[in-house]
Write a protein that binds this DNA or RNA. Structure first.
Lengths: 152, 152
DNA sequence: CCGATGAGTTGCGAATTGAAACCATTGTGC
DNA sequence: GCACAATGGTTTCAATTCGCAACTCATCGG
């Protein structure tokens, strides 16, 4: 036993119908998405995650365990040396749009007008355009023009 | 004074350069985004938020206070009666892409193959298409084809 | 005026965090 | 081959935060 009884999200209890709630059950805490962000940005080792995020080591160990358990991260032998390293799985990499929209919201609303911040750019160094949700026919969508359809 | 000393996110300290971190400082806890989700889905009153999310009342009071303080929600007099109600500000509504990508990730990865879940549809009842980040020239982008450019 | 709601607040025990110290393995320079 | 540093965690313990239930104040509906 002795899994250290340390849990992040309570895990499995919020409105089980809603995909948003399900996702937040997995990554809806202060750190998980920052870990994923750093993994996308090249972090692989425990120490590297710790250094980049500044998260407490015990919490980091717990989050890495959890993200791995839920299939967002995987551990594999590092190419060089025989230490283990953490890499994003397909599901983990698929959080890219989530991180991107969080980033873009932050750029729009969490910085003072002239304040500088890092930017996301593509291979050519060109800034990534802002994401705009559209319907099948191409019109812009927002909270007012959409609604949740309960499964029946 | 006595602001009840109840805080959600520690507020203001993670890598202040990164927009993702800034955003998560505001809404990166277990509940804030669910409150926003419900606000987008029509919730306006304390009780309604409480009923939909199942969140503890003291925590809800704290989150509403915080979201309001940070300008994601605003309180205004309800059209009927003279009770107050909470409504999303422009910044709050602008979290739509975040909620949407969380939802779409959940639909792809947090449900067993045949399992049912609610769906987001537009005015015509047509399901909202999946968001795909693209670069300026239209190619698909992901974690491998983009990188953060540090501000210098 | 009376009971029912709505909107929070308060008190508390339980669970989660964070900081720092500690430890067992590799790695490494010499 | 060895002393020494770095890695990857674990343990401990105090400080926060959470969740629950009970309680308070309006206001509402008759």
């Amino acid at each position: 036993m002795s899994r250290t009884t340390m849990g992040a999200p309570n895990l499995g209890w919020t409105d089980p119908e809603c995909p948003v709630a399900r996702t937040l059950d997995l990554v809806g805490d202060r750190w998980s998405l920052l870990v994923v962000r750093d993994a996308m940005d090249g972090a692989r080792s425990f120490t590297e995650f710790q250094r980049r995020t500044g998260i407490a080591r015990n919490i980091l160990a717990d989050r890495l365990r959890k993200l791995t358990a839920h299939g967002l991260l995987a551990q594999r032998a590092a190419p060089t040396g025989r230490r283990q390293e953490y890499v994003l799985t397909d599901a983990g990499r698929d959080l890219f749009p989530v991180i991107l929209t969080l980033r873009q919201w932050g750029e729009r609303h969490a910085f003072a007008p002239g304040e500088t911040h890092s930017t996301l750019v593509d291979q050519h160094g060109i800034p990534v355009p802002e994401i705009a949700p559209t319907s099948a026919d191409g019109t812009l969508l927002d909270a007012d023009t959409t609604h949740v359809q309960k499964t029946r």
